[in-house]
Write a protein that binds this DNA or RNA. Structure first.
Lengths: 348, 348
DNA sequence: AACGTCACAGCAAGCGCTTTCTATGTACCT
DNA sequence: AGGTACATAGAAAGCGCTTGCTGTGACGTT
């Protein structure tokens, strides 16, 4: 039924071993033989059996990319950059690797199960992107899994995710704390003293770090924070809309709203507009990430640009062993404050 | 080194066959035996060898999702919906399948190579999303590949992609033509007579269909189209910005700009603003897709909503064999016109 | 009491490939 | 010429799992 290596071998009048060597190309094969084999492959329309090959060679060409939410461009952009370096088919990398992105949806179980699935497939490398979940048991389970993967020879890279010490994983971490602080300091510098914060989901490291940066800025400037000024929600527009409304309800005198990310910020903008406030005249708004659409908001969003593409590409290269891991296997990637129209001095 | 089935068998004092059957669970195994095996699996921390299993069983649990650009939310949203139904780990589906998304970047070669890679892995199903490339040789190659996949037992589903007759693929197609026509008719109804069109890449079916719809509307209303009114570009914001500028240069009297999709429309909006035009007072703008950010544009974007999530979910279910394919294996999915602030009557 | 029937469990033969080791020319030295 | 070295090709032993077929007791039947 299906064409096998042996069929090709028969047709080319060589042994299966030779065909295998031609296909893998790391063993001397005479040019004439190679050609004959290639011709047979072509004529028979032969397709290598991946599982069989992976089994025999004890390695596979699968590279997994775990993302929290594939519908979010934040992850889409990173995944795209990573995949671009993995080579995938057509990439500049020589070996053809199947870079696959797995969508965990932010669920701890799925995260773990995907890792197991990749472990099963004997993946060549795994890249985990975005914030981690802060739950001790889950984190322990993840670390154990990562360690096992690393031990089994799978290269593990964390991109935009906090380091996982002792697991053998290489981390490219975003400086969310620093970015958050810089952003809020910008607002404070403009004169704001009553700042609302629309945070992401409680249990995410990203959420906590950005919030900590924000609070550090407040503290550094002697601003006492009112607990009512923080609302947690999801990392999406809808959540930002609702949270901003809630913030306004709690303290109508806020002059600035800092959001956990750009999508949330856009939702907040909509809420402010719908409640009759002008941006930035009445209320300033700031986001985080600087996704492509942020510049198109009206007014354009003040935010912190994260080099998603660069970081992703680097993570991809490291995963492929084409770039040296950073010293200590940990690197911190900084964001850049982008001051735009959505932030201004408070009225008065 | 690594734990194998045999190790588990030894530990549980049963034969490897029994362990396999416990793990696959479709063969009677006494409860006590099963428990013993499961215990051994747990104690040994055994992980099934995917390739070996796939080889022996001649099937795998891999499901491929091909997208043109993973950084584009259009694809991210669909991929997310598809993956949600595939089950992936934790999905409601019983069997755990590894749903992986492959980013072709719109390149014909990568598209084909990914398909080969998936064929190699003996994928259980493949879902191709978004517009196809209109190049006869490539299309022939794709069709041949799809047919081969289908013949090998891989279920092939097209989501938001034109049918591929004779390949055995099941198609859920977006009615781009109808949507494009409806959109332009709306603009014409408002009184516009000079409409620019920022099209996508020439060779995409999506591009052509939307443009055809647009032209059909013009023709139906006796508007003769000026060839200068159409500019082709990529499906991104930047391209929309440049194309809109070009359109204005060619005909400063345009009263409306229709874009190939929402990102392009946003870019066009920026260009219009930057050139001192008010939307919709001076120029109306319309997009396509209704991605989440479109409602946040100021003014909110008039566009055609495509049910990406619903279509993706359906495609996913069909791929998993959990939903009947549509009659004739082809279904057309309609878009819905969303009239919002970016379109209005031309200045009279 | 003898004999089908079942419910389980094990045997063993692969699945299609990779790779080590070995065999065979051929070329090159001295 | 004899011998060593090198370049190639083949034989064969698995890689770790699945599954058809074959036992083997326990049970129910007549």
């Amino acid at each position: 039924m299906t064409v096998t290596l042996a069929d090709v071998a028969a047709r080319a009048q060589v042994s299966p071993a030779t065909v295998s060597r031609v296909l893998n190309g790391n063993y001397p094969v005479a040019a004439s033989t190679r050609e004959r084999v290639l011709k047979a492959v072509d004529e028979l329309d032969y397709v290598l059996n991946g599982p069989a090959s992976a089994l025999a060679a004890a390695t596979s060409d699968l590279v997994g990319i775990l993302v929290n939410d594939i519908a979010d461009p934040f992850f889409g952009i990173m995944a795209s950059a990573i995949q671009g370096e993995i080579g995938g088919p057509g990439g500049r990398a020589g070996g053809e690797r199947l870079a696959v992105v797995c969508n965990t949806g932010g669920s701890p179980e799925r995260e773990l199960t995907y890792l197991t699935l990749l472990q099963r497939q004997r993946a060549a490398a795994v890249v985990l992107t975005g914030g981690a979940i802060e739950d001790a048991p889950h984190q322990a389970a993840m670390d154990a899994k990562l360690r096992k993967l690393a031990d089994a020879g799978t290269r593990v890279v964390l991109c935009g995710r906090p380091p996982a010490p002792g697991t053998g994983a290489i981390a490219l971490t975003f400086d969310n704390r620093g970015g958050g602080r810089e952003l809020t300091e910008h607002l404070i510098g403009l004169g704001h003293r009553r700042l609302g914060y629309v945070a992401g989901p409680q249990e995410r490291t990203t959420t906590r770090h950005r919030l900590e940066g924000h609070r550090a800025a407040l503290a550094a400037h002697g601003i006492e924070e009112d607990p009512r000024w923080t609302v947690h929600g999801r990392y999406d527009r809808r959540s930002g809309y609702e949270a901003a409304l809630e913030l306004l309800r709690r303290d109508p005198a806020l002059t600035a709203v800092v959001a956990a990310n750009d999508s949330v910020a856009l939702g907040a903008c909509a809420a402010l507009r719908d409640s009759g406030r002008k941006i930035p005249d009445d209320v300033s708004v700031a986001g985080f990430d600087d996704l492509p659409f942020s510049i198109d908001a009206v007014p354009a969003l003040t935010t912190v640009r994260l080099p998603l593409t660069e970081a992703g590409a680097r993570a991809g290269r490291i995963a492929m062993g084409r770039e040296e891991p950073p010293p200590g296997d940990i690197a911190s990637v900084r964001g850049e404050l982008m001051v735009r129209g959505s932030s201004g001095a408070p009225r008065g």
